[in-house]
Design a protein around this nucleic acid. Structure first.
Lengths: 147, 147
DNA sequence: TAGGCCTCGGTTATATTGTAACCGAACCGA
DNA sequence: TCGGTTCGGTTACAATATAACCGAGGCCTA
């Protein structure tokens, strides 16, 4: 697996090519996020940034996170109020997360087949899909093993 | 469609048969929840109950909601931090919700096919599923129509 | 280069959502 | 009726998120 700095740098490249403005704050938030193995809460992230004088107050962090999620380089996990970096740089794509209730790891898996199914169910009711939240909570392989 | 009181009464029946303790507080919360057409936040619900002297403080409401969700007669919508009543009385079942970003209506649809797909994706990674959050945000038929 | 527009983010304050911890009351089985 | 267990009232607070305002700085145009 690539190093977190790599992921952050590649993300910055992609955003630059796309013409998105990568500011100092956004870069700091992105890097801090990519350094984490696990999902992090906005305030956790805020604390990390404060520790290196790279943040001022919660609103700034939330704004940067909104931007990153919008650009598709981060996701918000609704069921645990936390954020994760993401190496798929499509603009604001959906994802399916497997979230371990024991070690808190979150693995992103593709949604293609699920998305088709969801679209079918939605279309059948005249519902227009904007975004999907699909999160599975349980035990990851490692934690299920030693349980 | 059945009246909300009906739904609440039938739910109480089912819970009684199951041996679950239906207390005054839980009944009040369940009824208040079933009276709503749309998802309601815990504090909104709290306000409704206060207005009829049927609640004391937030922790009581949250405890009752946890109970109801656990019994499968209510669901929590993670993407909007709100609760909805539910007429499928299986114990703690998962559901797929179509949530309208405009009118805030939330329609519950069966998860069978999606669930299979999610299970497949999870099992392929040795992940043991405990519960699923599947929420689709977009425009409902009514709102998409007059847009 | 000046003027004007727009995005970004610093700042303060506050709203919203959710819990910890403690304790007495009510219920329930033996 | 005793003793364990569940329930919920109460207080206080933690955690998450946003509103509103404003100035700084980029960027376009002429």
């Amino acid at each position: 697996m690539a190093q977190p700095e790599d992921a952050a740098l590649r993300a910055e490249d992609v955003l630059a090519q796309r013409g998105a403005r990568m500011t100092e704050l956004r870069r700091n938030v992105l890097r801090a996020l990519m350094e984490e193995e696990r999902p992090v809460g906005a305030y956790q992230l805020f604390d990390r940034l404060k520790a290196r004088d790279a943040a001022s107050a919660p609103p700034a962090v939330y704004r940067a996170l909104d931007f990153l999620v919008g650009e598709g380089v981060a996701h918000k996990l609704q069921s645990v109020n936390a954020y994760v970096g993401c190496a798929c740089f499509e603009h604001a794509h959906d994802a399916h997360f497997l979230i371990c209730g024991e070690c808190c790891a979150a693995e992103e898996v593709p949604t293609t087949d699920i998305r088709e199914q969801v679209d079918r169910d939605a279309c059948a009711r005249g519902f227009i899909v904007e975004r999907m939240v699909i999160e599975t909570v349980g035990r990851c392989a490692a934690c299920a093993g030693h349980a």
